[in-house]
Write a protein that binds this DNA or RNA. Sequence first.
RNA 1: GGCGGCAUGGCCAAGUGGACUAAGGCAGCGGAUUGCAAAUCCGUUAUCCAGGGUUCGAAUCCCUGUGCCGCCUCCA
Length: 488
Amino acid sequence: MTLKIYNTLTRQKEIFVPIEDGRVGIYVCGPTVYDHPHIGHAKSYVSFDIVVRYLRHLGYKVRYVQNITDVGHLTDNADAGEDKIEKRAKLEKVEPMELVEMYMRSYYEDMDALNNLRADISPRATGHIPEQIDLVSALIDKGFAYESNQSVYFNVSKLKDYGKLSGRKLEEQESGARIEINPEKKHPADFALWKKAGPEHIMKWNSPWGVGFPGWHLECSVMSMKYLGETFDIHGGGIENVFPHHECEIAQSETANERPFARYWMHNNMVTVDGQKMGKSLGNFVTLKDAFKKFSPLTIRFFVLNTHYSSPINYSDGALEAADTGLERLFNTIRSLRERMESSSGTEGLETWKAKLESYKNDFEGAMNEDFNTAEALAVLFNLSKEVNSLLNKEDVVSKGVLTEIDSFYRAYGGNVLGIITENTGQYDPEGADTYKIEDDLIKALIETRNELRASKQWELADKVRDRLSELGIIIEDKKEKVAWRKK
RNA sequence: GGCGGCAUGGCCAAGUGGACUAAGGCAGCGGAUUGCAAAUCCGUUAUCCAGGGUUCGAAUCCCUGUGCCGCCUCCA
């Protein structure tokens, strides 16, 4: 079985072959940290987290680079807007770097909650100004960039294959261009490499062309090449960045190096909210911090994984509630499994189950190998759970060996690869069991009382205890061997 | 105007030429289990937007139509 990846560059699914055997370099466009992350970030970064996790599962040594954009990303228009960071910093009356620090922390907080692994390198644009200046100089030297009024632009007319990623042709762009013609440019599609900074600018640096700041596209070229090499394996990002951002990255990098840039381009699709596109300018974006108030981060992760990364998803309370119930079902199995493990022993039936799990593994990996089909991979987990639940329902003794083997499977595939099952899955309070010690004892006391009522067939009173606990979010389950309880 | 994508059961969503007599989840219905529940299990609910074509064979390829959506301005 081999991994296949849909490559935007070639518009087809290709067998993945890394440049260096056993190693993978991947660069994913990170956030511009001028606001709290929203559910669009969740889809994007969960998707690429899965890519990294699965590549590691396959045994690759992965170097995952995801940048933090902290300068150069303009509002409105790639050449004429305000710097997003500066604009927001002025609004909040803080230093730009203070703002960056604040939202960067917010970003990591939410990504950690979603159980996304941290990137191996998280380079910041402001930390790579000299490298960016060098790249601009190199492009000027090669005759593909020109200085104009202390700004520098890339001359797209000189590049014959400009547009190869997005499938656009320069001639077609001219008629429909909505950008106002910038008189500094030779061609309307030329993009800024370096921008002259006026006196009002806070973030600015000296350069051979005067005081200025880097163009947005520049940082990704520079930082990916610095940490992954001039040609590297995978470049990922949101589909809305195919043009112009990624197209420009390719133009800059390949012109400077005279060799291919990223080999596989992966693009995740967008999130809509109640059927409408979610955009910062539309003001309908849902921050993760708000979403987390209603739904657990793992529910959101599960919701994202239920659809292929290249398909759009629609965020709505109803959809998230459905996802929540579905995930709970999976968790119920893990809970039952782990409870049963505590009281079991022996290794009877282990060989049979090893064979079964081998088959599930093949199904799971088969799904993931087809361009990271997480929806199908999840279906495999649900199928397994059905079989496990049946096993646990039978009165027969199930050996510890079998239960442990199944648990290992969930840890490996539901845990390490998909990141939805954790060490604590199935526990009544994953956050901190000891802080609920008294509550725990009180519940146990109530359950004991209720058991006595049941023994004397006082059903009404027994049910009342159960109903009251249910109202408080404690679910009682009368099982054959014992009475179990959990937090809803 | 240019480029690209999507249309699968009540909802969400895999599948993109032959083991599809179409995964999986949510919701519903019937049953098992239970003192009643909960949890779980079993059964049940589709011929794949419409029309035409290619093929021995199509949800899957081609054409036409309809309807959505994205990009071409910042956005993950």
